[in-house]
């Protein structure tokens, strides 16, 4: 564990807590893409298949349970909670994400570290996470103004993988046999997808204005 990875995990945890806060405090999920939440639930379920088979550390196990639990809870909330579900922007959240799921799974069948069930699903989760934010970014552009908590949620979600890139650089420099090309390349693509959001987020923060994404 290094400071970059810890910062990344904490930032990721904060993004989840901000989203939970928004939904429970405002009893609303307006501006949140259910499709991105469902993609993230798939990412965690596919990535943490080793949850019960490989014990790495208490921290690792606890965080995996937190991420799986929170993503499923948010999907459940947005689909079935009788108050929250009413504020879901159903007509704006129309990204056909099964194309992304199919493409990522196909890529994982071709490009993986080892051809085993667990490794293919792990590579699938890495590729899927890189594009999981797309429905959310499309929804933000369509819904115009973005409320603060939603903007902060997306910001922390994007920042966490940037910390992971620093972690991979650090591990590459300090650990002799460390190579994680699948994670690194996907992590770079994932962070790059946030580039324009980070730009408009910075502008809104600098001008102390509402976050506006151009349509």
């Amino acid at each position: 564990m290094n400071i970059f990875r810890l910062a990344g995990d904490m930032t990721h945890l904060i993004s989840v807590l901000v989203l939970l806060l928004k939904i429970y405090a405002t009893k609303s999920c307006s501006g949140i893409s259910l499709k991105t939440q469902e993609l993230y639930a798939m990412v965690f379920l596919a990535r943490y298949l080793d949850l019960f088979s490989d014990f790495i550390s208490l921290y690792n196990t606890v965080m995996k349970l937190v991420f799986i639990g929170s993503s499923l809870a948010i999907v459940w909330c947005m689909r079935y909670h009788r108050v929250v579900r009413r504020s879901y922007d159903r007509e704006l959240d129309t990204f056909r994400y099964w194309i992304l799921v199919g493409a990522c799974f196909t890529l994982a069948l071709v490009l993986h570290e080892k051809f085993s069930f667990q490794e293919v699903f792990w590579a699938f989760s890495i590729y899927l996470e890189a594009v999981a934010i797309l429905p959310q970014l499309v929804l933000l552009q369509r819904s115009g103004n973005v409320d603060n908590l939603t903007g902060q949620y997306v910001f922390f979600l994007g920042a966490y993988r940037a910390f992971y890139i620093l972690n991979w650089i650090y591990r590459y420099l300090t650990e002799p046999r460390f190579t994680r090309w699948i994670s690194c390349v996907s992590g770079l693509v994932q962070t790059a997808l946030y580039a324009d959001f980070f730009y408009y987020y910075f502008i809104s923060w600098k001008n102390n204005a509402k976050l506006q994404l151009p349509a």
């Binding site: 990875r5 690792n60 650990e175």
Partner: peptide, 10 residues
């Protein structure tokens, strides 16, 4: 201990 190729990251 797990080799470093293990998935020790989240």
């Amino acid at each position: 201990a797990k080799t470093d190729s293990a998935k020790d990251e989240l």
